[in-house]
Design a protein around this nucleic acid. Sequence first.
DNA 1: TGAAAAAATGACCATATAGTCACTTTATAT
DNA 2: ATATAAAGTGACTATATGGTCATTTTTTCA
Lengths: 222, 222
Amino acid sequence: MPKKTFENLALEKRKKFIDAFLKEFSSKKYDDASVTSVVKELGIAKGSIYQYFNNKLDLFLFLKSECEKVKMQYVLHVKREDFPDFWTYFKALYEEGIRFDKEHPLESNFLHNMMRHIDSPTIKQFHDEWFDQVIKIFSAFIQYEVDIGHFRNDIPVKSMAFFIYSISIKIGEYMAAIHGVDIQKNLESGKPVFGHNKGETLLKSVDENILILKQAIQKQTP
Amino acid sequence: MPKKTFENLALEKRKKFIDAFLKEFSSKKYDDASVTSVVKELGIAKGSIYQYFNNKLDLFLFLKSECEKVKMQYVLHVKREDFPDFWTYFKALYEEGIRFDKEHPLESNFLHNMMRHIDSPTIKQFHDEWFDQVIKIFSAFIQYEVDIGHFRNDIPVKSMAFFIYSISIKIGEYMAAIHGVDIQKNLESGKPVFGHNKGETLLKSVDENILILKQAIQKQTP
DNA sequence: TGAAAAAATGACCATATAGTCACTTTATAT
DNA sequence: ATATAAAGTGACTATATGGTCATTTTTTCA
């Protein structure tokens, strides 16, 4: 976590600092992201970083938690009970995701890029923790749908959770492959990952995926 | 591609050379794989590499094509027409994959690791080409199933292809999450990725995934 | 104004990496 | 045995990286 020195920083400078590093970590994976090059771009001394943070990982984890905080503000107020079924709820979550993406492209890019990199040895531990949490949350939702008889009950809940997770995580590649959206380019240029085009491409992709997921997971009437 | 010098190498030395580099490229991503460290382990001079190959990428692409050749020998003789439906065929392909994995763990690990790393800037081009090909092949199969009325026709073939691809690519993570198999460990130790335990864990995972995929993609009788 | 505290600096360190090339060693063929 | 060609070598280059710390600059406050 940041040292006092960083907390005391003038707001504008602090923001510039954060944004520059968000951008770096958004287009490169952790190990490839270069502290040195960001420092050059910011026009500050290398040593300053270590006046603000203990080390690179410390800085990364700070940015991670900041981004998560912001995203939570968007997602948390979407509640299952406000929707007639899981899929309208699922879509609403994505719509909030797009709002977040449009209004906070840097933060969105950061999180999106982080999720894709399963294998940075330094980061693995944190990715694994994050993954466990996601599966747990998904599982809880699915268990509910199974209980009320909406979802099939011949498959372990955890498997279904993983299934939905996999498709969600691959939606970027899906858009690239099916709709020709170049996410990597957006990441590098700092544009919203999905949000440009009013996010319609993403929503179209979500609809297509729901069409498949629905039949895969929904309880069939015999 | 290799220079004459490499072709002329004594078979045993050639094999040792290939195996050492397969192992390195199996547990690290391209950019992180270290020529220097393999050279040390092999006890040969750094310069020799560049007597055999033009550069690191040249060496990597050679290994890639070697591994693909070997895998093809396993997979190519499994033919759709020998099976009553797509899913038994699909499973048979995995069974061949397991045989390949058991009999050529290094090659299997190399390919498996390569697929996971979508984002090495040096490698991206080759990964993209490979991805396009896979989607094309999958699409052709699915088109056939749609034509004979086995698969649903309300979803673009390419979308279904991507769906099956996504699940296939994530099966490693699935095994890790659901069945507690540590693939990364197997990669690093050079053991078969899936093949230990007679590959039963993988086949179980395949069965579970087929159960979901089947309902997702199969044409429903109304 | 001046002393003490806080912040910023950048040369420097240790440690990697891929790739080069003048040179030596080994194998082949006359 | 000798000459030629092929193979092998390892010190070296150029270029990164994250992190350190004695020193200087700026800010704070009495």
